[in-house]
């Protein structure tokens, strides 16, 4: 445990000081401030922010994470040459990425939104949801990053794989859902589609967020079905737990490879 804490502290400090992370924070800050000022008021700006959270966060987490692990290769070796278990090094890497990336989110998106919420208390709830889901997505895609970087030996191929993971979750998967929907359009599909949504972290995050912003109520019968699923506390807990599972699975798979890996 103390080993983990030491590695984690060093990694967090290292990532927090990197210009990449500063740039990422500023980018989020800029996007949030611009959307709040020019993207309309309250919920509408938040809806635009949903897109930032759903697209940018996973992309940055998985790409930055993957490249970071490749860059840290020699340092990982140095750490492993110390009397330290591989688990501590691996989790230290994960936390060292996920914590600063989450902090960037909290500062960049949360900061301006808190200012907004102080004037308009109705913003607190969507703000909390946005940040919670954002942090969970960061965890998920940092885990993917670690998994990819451990599994793929070569840096450029790892970078490509990271992009593929992102693309698969944001675009390809939804294309497949649509294909399923059109193929089986004569069947009641609300339930199967909900299941499919649960299996893709970005879809799950998107639906949870959209339902927070009351869009579902406007979307007729299907919207009501979805709202009933996610609108309850139980549904929300299920969704958040599923996002944690989405982070845990690649994290665990990556660890299994990391444990046997030859450096």
């Amino acid at each position: 445990m103390t080993d983990l804490r030491q590695v984690l502290a060093a990694q967090v400090r290292n990532v927090l000081r990197s210009r990449w992370l500063v740039g990422y924070t500023l980018l989020l800050l800029l996007a949030t401030v611009l959307l709040l000022r020019f993207g309309g008021s309250g919920t509408r700006a938040l809806l635009s922010l949903v897109n930032v959270v759903l697209l940018l966060l996973p992309l940055v987490s998985v790409v930055f994470g993957t490249l970071y692990v490749y860059n840290a290769r020699e340092f990982i070796e140095l750490l492993l040459a110390q009397p330290v278990g591989r688990g501590a090094v691996y989790l230290g890497l994960f936390g060292g990425l996920a914590i600063p990336l989450s902090l960037a989110l909290l500062a960049g998106v949360g900061g301006p939104l808190v200012v907004e919420a102080l004037q308009d208390p109705s913003v607190w709830r969507p703000l909390a949801m946005l940040l919670t889901v954002g942090v969970l997505l960061t965890l998920v895609f940092t885990a993917f990053a670690l998994c990819v970087a451990v599994l793929v030996e070569e840096r450029s191929r790892g970078f490509g794989a990271a992009l593929l993971v992102w693309l698969a979750c944001t675009v390809v998967y939804d294309g497949l859902i649509l294909l399923v929907l059109t193929t089986f359009r004569d069947y009641p599909l609300e339930a199967p589609v909900l299941v499919l949504t649960f299996l893709n972290p970005i879809d799950l995050a998107r639906v949870v967020l959209l339902l927070t912003f009351d869009v579902a109520l406007l979307m007729g019968y299907t919207g009501t079905v979805f709202a009933r699923m996610f609108g309850t506390a139980g549904g929300l807990v299920a969704a958040f737990s599923m996002l944690l599972v989405c982070a845990a699975v690649p994290l665990w798979a990556g660890y299994r490879w990391f444990r046997r890996k030859d450096f």
Partner: peptide
Amino acid sequence: NEPALILLRSLFV
């Protein structure tokens, strides 16, 4: 195909 609504605001769409 109403259930397709679940894809609302997705990048793919």
